[in-house]
């Protein structure tokens, strides 16, 4: 390419093709994030996805509207190749419970960092005389993707709480980067797809972070109820039926015993939730054994001056990591 101000890197057809690729990535990301919101328990991640669905939709829309100006049908998405479709499909596979780390890594550590790098590469080569319509969209997308990447990094940092989680995140990232390399990136034209880095202090992303430090508050848990719930859990851990059965209202003993029959060997317990219904309390207790964890929801009511258990339901059972 010469230094002439009208020298260009992309033909009209090349630019349209790249834009169809961008639209493919943005649209698919929008749909994946939208689908994941309901499947993601952690509030900061759930709300991060909720914030970014609309940004991705607008990016896809802007690209889709630009296309007819480049002799291409409006709102058309096109992946660069089948390998890139495979890459996106792999990102989307993180849908099972407990895979929020993989979701955030897939979108924010790999896909968006690559998209940002591709946008920056395009902007560096787009001619400033005859490609300003594309450049303006690129500039907006770059600004917003930088914000997304920075906010995603903060949320991921909160999710990765130990070495095992860190190893999981790194392994998933490596696997996705390999798959992205097999596609030769979003442009389908590079040996090693670039991943842009974003310095956190270079972007204002605080508006994208909600409920980051929000945790369980045992406000509705009075001291006597806490003691009753703990004593009950200790009896379960010790497998002493007469002790835990004494906490249960007589009319509920059979049903509660039936539910507890599904519990295995237990070692520790922790109260993780307390909700109020008038004077009653609904408590969630996590019971951990050597091999499995159980989340039990219990309904406690005051009767004859003491807390009595009226219902107990196992709401979840998971293998220990």
């Amino acid at each position: 390419m010469t230094a002439h101000p009208l020298a260009g890197h992309f033909s009209v057809d090349d630019a349209a093709r790249r834009i169809r690729h961008y639209r493919y990535a943005e649209e698919r990301t929008m749909r994946i994030l939208g689908g994941w919101i309901a499947l993601t328990p952690e509030l900061p991640a759930k709300l991060l996805f909720g914030r970014h669905v609309w940004d991705c939709a607008q990016h896809a829309d802007l690209w889709g509207r630009r296309l007819p100006e480049l002799r291409s049908p409006a709102q058309q998405s096109e992946p660069p190749n089948e390998a890139f479709v495979d890459f996106m499909a792999l990102v989307e596979t993180a849908e099972e419970p407990g895979r929020t780390i993989e979701r955030v890594v897939g979108i924010y550590r790999v896909l968006k960092r690559h998209l940002l790098a591709e946008y920056e590469r395009h902007l560096a080569h787009a001619n400033p005389v005859y490609e300003p319509p594309t450049r303006r969209i690129l500039q907006r997308c770059i600004e917003e993707e930088r914000r997304h990447v920075a906010a995603g990094a903060v949320v991921l940092d909160r999710l990765v709480t130990d070495d095992a989680a860190r190893a999981r995140a790194q392994a998933w990232e490596r696997r996705l980067v390999e798959r992205l390399a097999a596609a030769r990136g979003l442009g389908g034209d590079v040996e090693t797809p670039a991943l842009a880095d974003v310095a956190p202090d270079s972007v204002r992303f605080q508006g994208d972070l909600v409920a980051l430090d929000s945790t369980f508050e045992p406000v509705g848990l009075s001291e006597d109820l806490a003691q009753a719930v703990d004593a009950h859990a200790r009896a379960l851990i010790d497998a002493e039926r007469s002790r835990w059965a004494a906490d249960v209202a007589p009319e509920a003993r059979e049903a509660v015993a039936g539910e507890y029959a599904a519990l295995g060997k237990l070692a520790t317990s922790e109260i993780v939730a307390v909700a109020r219904i008038g004077a009653h309390r609904v408590v969630r207790v996590r019971l951990d054994g050597p091999e499995r964890s159980w989340l039990v929801q219990q309904q406690w009511r005051r009767a004859d001056g003491q807390w009595r258990l009226f219902t107990a339901t196992i709401v979840r059972s998971d293998p220990r990591p």
Binding site: G35, A38, L39, T40, P41, E42, L43, K46, P97, T215, F216, V272, A273, V274, A275, I277, V282, R284, R286, L295, Q297, V315
Partner: peptide, 15 residues
Amino acid sequence: IAYDKLAREDRFVRM
């Protein structure tokens, strides 16, 4: 997705 796949942190009590 099935109704019961709605994901929540453990601090939410569902009834």
